[in-house]
Each structure stands twice: as structure tokens, then as C-alpha cells.
Design a binder for these strands. Structure first.
Lengths: 136, 136
DNA sequence: GTATATTCCTACTATTCAGATAGGAATATA
DNA sequence: TATATTCCTATCTGAATAGTAGGAATATAC
């Protein structure tokens, strides 16, 4: 229950890899072999990370990916959302109008509360916590 | 991300339905039509709820399902776990030995913390909150 | 004791989605 | 011009979820 996609786990490893390079860049192939991630799959992951502004890239020879900003400023929520979108226990979480049960939907507030709890936890932790391995 | 299965949502509606009967029983067919849940699918859900001790049943004519205990004593965690098992962001959450990354797995503590946050939220809320609709 | 209403059990089908793969276009460097 | 890279699009595959189907077991009522 509530399992995290392989994609998100890969993304965290990739970001942690880049974080350790302190601003230097790495190619997708470097990251893939170091982290044991299928290269072609990783390319898609890096593309999403780039769309979310978490990494920047350069094409061509000597190209690669570089982390944007400092590790302590990259929230885990940002990485998770870059991969699988916002936390949504139920689809109607952000609009009562879209709820099949309508106004009568009693569990809706409950799910919104769950979303808040998850978002808060993910937002309180940064990539730095992962890299340093000294979080909770 | 972190979406809840239809099964769990159905289960909550079914339990809320039973809770409102205050100890009286209802047939699967009653619940199915009142809550708009496919009957045959609901039967499987009720079977799991029974296995977890959340409802009891009686067969034959005048049979049906009855909620066990009081609504305030039925945690939402119990319902969720009855449907989809325990909260497990990553599969190695309960044993480092089963972690493919082994001792070197930095994110593991992070995921365990997430599990704790989710478990805590689900455990703090009961079926009573849902039925009364005045939670958070 | 027969008809009926119900839970309970097993198997099957359909659909969706995650994970992965493939090929090659665009682009930058040497 | 050769090469190394990101970037784009399409496709395949296996597993899981959601739902369906049929009937066995069991209890009640007449």
C-alpha cells in the first residue's frame, strides 16, 4: 500500500548522485552505470527532472546533467512530484466539484488531511538528508 | 501519486454504511445498491473485512454483515490494511536485509519515516470521523 | 423437506499502467 | 566529418486492479 514507483526511487538516486558532484555534471550513461539504472529509462527520468527545473542539461559532446541549486533546497516533495505528479489519495482531492459523491462525500476531508500529512513530511526533507544519511 | 485503490474507497463506504446501522446487519446486496458498488466485487471486500475482524457475518436467509465494535474504535488504518496490506512505500521498509541496496541504502530511513507519518495519520482517524463528517 | 435467500469460494476476463526497450533525430565538440 | 551526447516518439510486456460469473454451502420459513 502506498508504494513508491521505481521511477521515483531511481530519480532520488540520480539526484543524490548529482548532488555529490557539487555542481559538476555527469552524463546519463555515467549515472546509469553508477546507480544501476537502465540508461534509456533514466533518460526519461532526467527529462522530467529537467522539466521541473531540478536539473539542467547540455547536449553534445562533453554534455550531461547538472543539479540546479543546493541539495538542502531540493525538497523530496519536488522530486516525487516531478516523477508522479502531486500527491492525490483520491482524484477529487483538489476539487469538490469533481467528486462523484458530490457534497455528500464524507471521506473527502479525510483524504485531504492525508495528502497534507504526506506533503508536509516530503516537504520537510531535502536531498541533503538523503545524501548525508542522517535523517530521522 | 499515492492514490488509494477503489477497493479501499468502497470498503470505507461499506463500513460507514454498517456503522450507521448501529449494530444491525445489512446484506451485501443492500450495501451494494445503497452505495453504488458492484455486488460481486463488494462480496470480496466484505470477505477481507471479515478476515480482519472488522465485520462479522451470518449466512442463509436473514443473514448479512454487522460491524464489529464501535465506530470510534475502528481505525482507518485497520480498514486500509484489511484491503491492501500494510503501508509500504518501498518493499524493504521492514527489513534492511531485504533491501537490494543493502546497508548502503541511504533513502531507507526516509521511507520508514514516511510510513510512520502515514500510519500515524490513518491511526488517528476512526470510522466515526468519516460517519460524522466533522474531521479536520 | 422444499423453496428461497443469503454468504462463501474459485475461476476467469478486461483494462490499465509501470517499467523497460528501440531507433533515431538534434546538437555540440574535437 | 566523426563522435558523443541529449532529446523525442513509439512500442512492447508483465503485473496488478477492477470487475464478472457460476455455483457450493448454509440458514430460514413455509
Amino acid at each position: 500500500m502506498f508504494s513508491v514507483s521505481a521511477r521515483t526511487q531511481y530519480a532520488i538516486r540520480a539526484m543524490a548522485h548529482l548532488a555529490r558532484l557539487e555542481g559538476k555534471s555527469a552524463t546519463a550513461a555515467d549515472i546509469a552505470s553508477a546507480q544501476g539504472i537502465p540508461l534509456k529509462y533514466l533518460e526519461g527520468i532526467l527529462s522530467r527532472l529537467k522539466l521541473s527545473g531540478l536539473v539542467e542539461s547540455e547536449r553534445g559532446k562533453n554534455g550531461g546533467y547538472r543539479m540546479q541549486g543546493r541539495a538542502q533546497d531540493v525538497s523530496m516533495l519536488a522530486i516525487v512530484e516531478a516523477m508522479d505528479g502531486s500527491v492525490k489519495p483520491v482524484s477529487c482531492v483538489d476539487s469538490a466539484a469533481s467528486c462523484a459523491q458530490g457534497r455528500a462525500c464524507l471521506p473527502r476531508k479525510f483524504w485531504i488531511g492525508l495528502k497534507s500529512a504526506i506533503d508536509a513530511y516530503l516537504n520537510e526533507h531535502s536531498l541533503k538528508d538523503i545524501v548525508e544519511g542522517d535523517q530521522v
